[in-house]
Computed example of a mutant assay.
Amino acid sequence: MKHDTASDPVSGILWTRRTTEKVADELASGGIEVCPNTVAKLLKELGYRLKVNAKKLNRQKDPGRDVQFAYIAAMREDFSQAGLPVVSIDAKHRELVGEFKNAGTTWVREPVTVLDHDFLSDATGVALPYGVYDIGANEACVSVGTTHDTPDFAVDNLARWWACHGRHRYPEATELLVLADSGGSNGARCRAWKYGLQHRICDRYSLTVTVCHYPSGASKWNPIEHRAFSEIQKNWAGRPLTDYETVLNYISTTRTKSGLRVDAHLVQLNYPTGVKVSDKEMKDLSLRPHDTQPNRNYTISPR
């Protein structure tokens, strides 16, 4: 085992690339007859553990990563101190609706039977959860789309949150801070996203919107990921999402000890892809990039 062993220098946990069957065979060749199960017990006593690969390596060199995290922290503090709303937005990965396997386990007498393959042709449809998480109120509003995750879809969901929750919760607020990932439908380089913010939120509600994007590869630090979406994932773990009513029910009944509340609704509008915004339309926006990393931080004011 000496040349097939690696270890964690901090925890001291050991692991090996050899299977218990191979170790048992080698011991047998040396005159020691043991079964693979006994080998597994002995390895545990020696400090070995079964481990999966840990996704921690990041080859993207981003010199402004720490600066952006510090800037986001400062912006959150400034808005919170002023009593202004701060929201975190993101889209969860697409879910097939139907009798499909859902990752996780649940306490039941008999396992629920599901289809043996996840074919889109067998699905009732697709569910595209898009969330707006109010950090100060610890409440999330999740819109479940049925077509595509586009910039128009993202803007509509944020506008719906402001119309139904935000402006009533913060009646005196004239500014909003939005924390978002760098890519996707609400990405830092997405023209349609900024265009939609101007026309359907800033101008319509006379609201100044400041957007700060997390660095590439840092989506796990976006608050909605670990405060809302992870809890929704736990709530429906091991339960097939057989229809849209089931999807909405699991999302809206998500609760945590810290007091999280989630509102969910279905959005059956068709959002076409490939919508373009021209240079002229971009010049008409009331868009002000910040001095700190202007490609990631900007404010859009009502016209």
Rank of each mutant, 00 (worst) to 15 (best):
G131V: 03
K283H: 12
A140K: 02
T106C: 03
R227H: 13
Y244D: 14
H265Y: 14
V155M: 01
I251H: 02
I232F: 09
V262F: 04
A192T: 08
N297L: 00
V87L: 12
T273N: 02
G30W: 09
E45G: 03
P223H: 05
L266Q: 11
H93N: 09
W193H: 14
S206P: 11
V112P: 09
F153D: 07
P294S: 01
H93Y: 07
A228F: 15
I201P: 06
R94G: 00
N295C: 01
G274S: 10
G125N: 13
A228E: 14
T150I: 14
L285T: 08
I300H: 04
I72S: 10
R169Y: 00
A40G: 14
E231V: 06
N58V: 08
C35P: 00
G166Y: 05
G31N: 10
G145V: 02
K280P: 00
N270L: 13
T38W: 04
M282H: 11
T19Q: 12
P129M: 09
A103T: 11
C202Y: 05
V108D: 11
N222E: 05
L197R: 12
R303P: 15
Q81C: 00
G166M: 06
I224S: 07
H290G: 04
S258E: 13
E26Q: 04
A192L: 05
H199G: 08
Q60D: 07
A154G: 03
N249W: 13
W161R: 07
E77Q: 06
E172L: 05
L266A: 07
T20Y: 11
E33Y: 15
D118K: 04
A140W: 12
K41Q: 15
D78A: 08
S7W: 12
D90Y: 11
R109H: 12
Y195M: 04
H117P: 01
L27R: 13
S29P: 05
N58W: 05
V142M: 03
D156R: 15
T254C: 14
V247K: 00
L269Q: 13
K276C: 06
T254A: 12
A137D: 07
R227D: 13
N270K: 15
L248A: 09
D4Y: 12
G259W: 10
E99D: 06
L158S: 01
T150Q: 14
F100Y: 05
G183C: 03
A24Y: 11
R227Q: 10
Y214H: 05
W221R: 06
T253G: 04
S88K: 03
K61G: 07
A218M: 06
A91D: 13
S80W: 09
A82K: 15
W236M: 11
A103M: 11
Q81T: 00
N37R: 12
K276P: 04
I251E: 04
V39A: 04
L128W: 13
W221M: 09
N249H: 12
I251C: 14
H199K: 10
K234M: 09
K44C: 04
E225W: 00
K101S: 15
W162S: 01
A163Q: 15
A163P: 06
S258P: 03
F229V: 08
G83T: 03
H199C: 05
K257R: 13
S182D: 15
T210K: 13
A28M: 04
E281Y: 03
L42D: 08
A127W: 02
K92C: 01
G104L: 11
P289I: 02
S11F: 15
S301K: 02
V262I: 09
G64W: 11
